[in-house]
Write a protein that binds this DNA or RNA. Structure first.
Lengths: 212, 212
DNA sequence: AAGTGTGAAAAGTTTCACAGCG
DNA sequence: CGCTGTGAAACTTTTCACACTT
């Protein structure tokens, strides 16, 4: 029974999944430098973790290291890509093209890492367009039909905090399964939906505790 | 190793400190509604945690609940504020007023939560100014003197990834103790400096694992 | 010799459950 | 009675250390 009945994802620690993304970045850099093999010590140092942790993390989803040698960069890259579900471009929508939202649209950090923001929505599309956003900005009434027709599963949420929960309810009902939430609020969703909170003021507050 | 003294902050779990900020927000809302007392069950629900956890978290830094009644909103608020080191406005600088950086300057999420972004720095201040930033944008050569003269301890870092480590070295040497880092890179700092990473693409990647 | 894979110990967190106070 | 404060149990994650493979 300890041989996992639970298929695939179930028992990889959540934090290990975050680290997988970090490893992925480091491996891309190595590959760009035409490195073919890397040891757990070297990769761990680049990723800012302990080598034992790296080995354990990788072991969660297979054995592909060679003892005495290290890990083949190529194989690790494609395995992590598959594990993270990044084989194909994931379409993403952005809801709330206000100050922060339209900034994110002009910022190309997502595209660089292989996510395509396919559309933006706002209660007032014209205002957003005037903020220098090049992407199509639709009225939020089009949300449901767009999500359905384009099978979008991921959404970035930047609406004002007082509207956040209501918009989330609509997103979830329309089929969104993952939400990157920038509003400082605890969102309620069904258990099959994953919410990731990015709360900038909270991060600063946290820092402020650690400075003396 | 376990030389852990009870000197002030030392042994509150790190995750509890994050939650403290969340509780703080919820309490502010309660106070705005003129609620005077709140039970652990109610506050916990608002914060999205279990009531036992809330009680344990609060107990880390004192006892101020009244059995049978709950916690006094006012006292909790000021205690958390003190614990987080938020008694006084913390000045913050922003380094790298490019796309994301200047967006954050126009976004007022920090000010709303009581942080004052006092200055911005960029290798090319004119370009930043043209992005509609109202705050003073200084050339990055002024960093060290500004930090020294204004005793700034917190910095938001939005420079391109290839410059990030070099800029951080300068910030740390100049006396910065907490860094909110938006570059997708693992920064090396001395142990007395705290780095908080906000890696937007990484958050999306993480979500992408959980959708099926 | 170099470096993975992994059980087992340690450390860190959360949850339980209930005594005890107002 | 209602609700806090908290030891102890349960669970999660990290680290250690070493057998084992190339």
């Amino acid at each position: 029974m300890d041989t996992s009945e639970k298929i695939g994802k179930i028992d990889i620690p959540k934090k290990a999944i975050y680290r997988l993304s970090i490893y992925y970045r480091c491996l891309q850099k190595l590959k760009a430098n035409e490195v073919e093999t890397v040891s757990s010590t070297t990769l761990a140092k680049a990723a800012g973790v302990k080598s034992a942790q790296l080995r354990k993390d990788l072991a969660y989803f297979g054995q592909f290291g060679t003892r005495g040698l290290g890990y083949p960069v190529d194989i690790l890259l494609s395995t992590i890509r598959d594990t993270l579900g990044r084989e194909h471009l994931q379409p993403v929508i952005l809801v709330g093209a206000g100050n922060l939202g339209s900034a994110l649209l002009r910022y190309h950090g997502f595209e660089k890492e292989g996510f395509e923001v396919v559309a933006a929505f706002d209660a007032n599309p014209d205002a957003a367009r005037s903020r220098g956003v090049l992407l199509a900005v639709y009225p939020d009434s089009d949300l449901e039909s767009f999500i359905g027709e384009n099978s979008v599963k991921l959404a970035i949420l930047c609406v004002p905090v007082e509207f956040a929960q209501a918009v989330v309810n609509r997103l979830v009902a329309a089929g969104i399964q993952g939400i990157l939430n920038f509003s400082p609020i605890v969102l309620e969703v069904t258990p099959d939906v994953t919410v990731n909170n990015v709360d900038l003021a909270l991060e600063l507050e946290h820092l402020s505790y650690f400075i003396r």
